[in-house]
Nucleic acid binder design. Structure first.
Length: 271
DNA sequence: ATGGTCGGCGTCCGA
């Protein structure tokens, strides 16, 4: 069975619902994980997704900020929401696919929106950065998150960290820029190494190659100098590594009308 | 060049 999954920080799902529809009609992933939906669950464009064929929807929204959602063509068995750092922020949702999706073995999917962390890369001066570092520590220590042995787990989302040198346009120039500081890169990789995770992008694209999924709004022309960062990630458990058949980043989406600053990232597996 | 642009909400905050 072919299973495809997209992660996309949409930066307001209501404002960009037509862009989401455009993407869905072209790529038709089985499952779409959204971050920064920026709306309460009652305001989520449920009917539009159902008309597009995505009848199974799990929401963790809040007013104005953050918000994550999983919209799916395949039914799932259960939904779970975790909180981090004793805050009620909507930054996580997970679902488990099973018999309803014709899967003999369970497939657990986590969708994350990690705090951006503000501008000052010093946890003593910037509470937002301190929160981000604590969030990453909690991701590491959260045992149920991490796959072992034959577990089939996928973790996706806007992790707001570009951990490797070629995950940013200039490693040297971004060492003191939040998203690429050594301390947060170490913490994200420590969380990744806590489970049997494979970073799909770096499993398929050589470390020497630049890979980005985000380009700032604060540039007159996002294509000039290609100053991107790889903030959006897809991890699969080791048991799924050899089942990955495709991985793609729809870079073009950054040039669509009124775009998100993030582009969709898609993985395909043969289950 | 040490600012620049977004979206949601409400007259700023978080990104």
């Amino acid at each position: 069975m072919r299973f495809s999954l997209t992660t996309w920080n949409i930066n307001s799902v209501r404002l960009r619902i037509n862009l989401v529809a455009k993407f869905i009609k072209s790529v038709r992933p089985d499952v779409l994980c959204l971050q920064e939906t920026k709306c309460i669950d009652d305001a989520f464009p449920l009917k539009r997704f159902k008309r597009l064929g995505y009848e199974h929807i799990a929401l963790n929204g809040q007013k104005g900020y953050h918000g994550v959602a999983i919209v799916s063509r395949l039914p799932f068995e259960k939904t779970d929401i975790r909180t981090f750092c004793d805050k009620l922020d909507s930054r996580h949702i997970s679902v488990e696919f099973g018999p309803g999706a014709q899967l003999a073995r369970p497939l657990v999917l986590h969708n994350f929106y990690v705090p951006a962390g503000g501008d000052i890369p010093d946890p003593a001066l910037n509470p937002k950065f301190e929160h981000k570092l604590r969030f990453l520590d909690e991701m590491k220590s959260c045992e149920p998150l991490h796959p072992r042995g034959e577990d089939r787990h996928i973790l996706v989302g806007d992790l707001n960290v570009a951990p490797h040198e070629n995950d940013v346009w200039s490693h040297k120039q971004l060492l003191k820029i939040v998203s690429h500081t050594p301390i947060e890169c170490e913490k994200l990789l420590a969380a990744q190494n806590q489970g049997d995770w494979i970073d799909v992008a770096r499993d398929r694209i050589p470390m020497s190659e630049k890979v980005y999924t985000w380009w700032s709004y604060r540039a007159a022309d996002w294509t000039v100098g290609d100053r991107g960062r790889r903030l959006d990630h897809i991890w699969v458990s080791r048991a799924l590594k050899e089942r990955v058949s495709d991985f793609r980043i729809v870079r073009d989406a950054r040039g669509w009308e009124r775009p998100s600053d993030h582009v969709p990232v898609t993985v395909t597996l043969d289950l």
